[in-house]
């Protein structure tokens, strides 16, 4: 239980830029080190967390916590994921002006932003493997990427269409 709390505390503390930025760290800590979920399960989990309301990263922590230790596991991993944000924001709210005007802080963030983008881009190909992308379904991620990136389609519609499409295709194969 404490392990869940500690792991998600670390994830919450070192995730800059929200939601997807958490994925590389979750992959490293939760999948590679702790083996709480498999690579393929993580892909499923991202789909579920994305299609549920609420905060993506928190949704992921709830599922993993619940899978490991039931409701209390979910509670402690969520607490771990939220606590750093809560404390850091309070601290900043107390001392807002000093923080904003500090050029060192600004430079620090300028430096880490490209790294965050790289860390989000990096798991794409590994996930493609876990998701069993082949030449018959490779059009799905390509289509999804362009629909979101260039047409500004909300990811929630992509998830809905993909899920319904998969379900319909499964039914069609069985008939």
């Amino acid at each position: 239980m404490f392990d869940l709390f500690k792991t998600f505390l670390q994830i919450g503390l070192f995730t800059f830029g929200g939601g997807y930025a958490m994925i590389p760290l979750i992959e490293k800590k939760v999948v590679d080190e702790k083996h709480w979920v498999g690579h393929e399960e993580l892909v499923d989990l991202i789909a579920v967390a994305q299609s549920c309301p609420g905060i993506f990263a928190v949704n992921i922590s709830i599922f993993i916590g619940y899978k490991q230790r039931g409701v209390w596991g979910a509670f402690f991993s969520t607490l771990g994921a939220c606590l750093p944000s809560f404390l850091i924001i309070l601290l900043i709210a107390f001392a807002f002006l000093q923080f904003r005007d500090n050029p060192w802080v600004e430079k620090f963030f300028k430096g880490l932003r490209p790294a965050v983008v790289a860390l989000i881009a990096a798991p794409v190909f590994r996930m493609a493997k876990s998701a069993k992308i082949n030449r018959y379904n490779v059009w799905i991620p390509i289509f999804a990427t362009f629909a979101i990136w260039l047409l500004g389609v909300s990811p929630i519609y992509i998830i809905l269409i993909a899920g319904l499409g998969g379900y319909a295709y499964g039914q069609y194969l069985r008939d």
């Binding site: 997807y20 991202i46 789909a47 999804a144 990136w149 998830i159 269409i161 993909a162 295709y169």
Partner: peptide, 29 residues
């Protein structure tokens, strides 16, 4: 039914992640 739903979802998630990375490659970052 759950399995075939995820058959459609999994490839789409890869696209979601790729789009998130591409959207962040902007002037601000």
């Amino acid at each position: 039914a759950v399995e075939s739903t995820f058959m459609g979802l999994r490839p789409a998630v890869v696209g979601l992640l790729a789009a998130a990375a591409l959207l962040l490659m902007n002037e601000e970052n």
